[in-house]
């Protein structure tokens, strides 16, 4: 059996890569993909702890996370398509309507 900390390390590395993608990239679609990456790394942690504590509630929470991720992608891509069609923005820096 693989030690628990290996899973935690993989989850942390994936989360860090996702954070770096959100902070460094400008393409909106790639930023959304990085958010998916972060949600996935959290799922790894949830399932690993659920398995090692012999408690399946972690898996149920992972199911809920996957559902919320699917909702988030649907709404975010809807917003993105509306934005691109109405004013032709492609980068995160160009969305500054709310800037004071």
């Amino acid at each position: 059996m693989v030690p628990l900390s290996w899973y935690i390390i993989v989850g942390s590395v994936l989360f860090l890569i996702g954070v770096a993608g959100v902070l460094f990239r400008r393409n909106i679609i790639v930023v959304l993909m990085s958010i998916e990456l972060m949600l996935n790394s959290v799922n790894i942690n949830l399932v690993a702890f659920s398995q090692y504590m012999e408690d399946l509630r972690g898996q149920i929470f992972a199911i809920f996370t996957i559902t919320v991720a699917a909702c988030e992608v649907a709404v975010a891509l809807g917003i993105l398509i509306a934005l691109v069609k109405s004013r032709g923005v492609h980068n995160t820096d160009e969305i500054d309507t709310m800037k004071g």
Binding site: V10, V13, L14, I17, G18, A20, G21, F24, R25, V30, M33, S34, L37
Partner: peptide
């Protein structure tokens, strides 16, 4: 991890 780096 390699493919995640590819995403970014």
């Amino acid at each position: 991890i390699g493919s995640a780096l590819g995403v970014v």
